[in-house]
């Protein structure tokens, strides 16, 4: 599963991951392999990314959007 976390200024993170936890507007949720296609708005909070090698990375965000389909995740953050 591939993820890209993008801000208007730069690419924050890109790589292969196991799971990602996102602060959705309706509550926090996780995306794992073969998740159904989803578009969701994000609110203030932390993104937790677990890479395939087990590394865990966090990103603080104010808000944003996520689109996931075909194991391709794009997170647009502010």
């Amino acid at each position: 599963m591939h993820i890209e976390i993008i801000t208007p200024e730069k690419l924050l993170f890109a790589g292969e991951i196991k799971l990602v936890k996102l602060p959705g507007t309706l509550g926090s949720f996780e995306i794992m392999e073969n998740h159904a296609p989803i578009i969701s708005t994000l609110s203030k909070g932390k993104i937790k990314v677990k890479e395939t090698n087990g590394n865990i990375v966090y990103f603080e965000i104010v808000g944003g959007l996520v689109e996931a389909s075909n194991n391709e995740i794009k997170v647009l953050v502010e």
Binding site: I38, I39, L65
Partner: peptide, 19 residues
């Protein structure tokens, strides 16, 4: 693809347009 929209399409649009 059939997307799940959260919270709703309208709210997503409300967020995207200003952005």
């Amino acid at each position: 693809p059939w997307y799940i929209f959260e919270p709703s399409m309208q709210e997503i649009a409300d967020k995207i347009i200003p952005q």
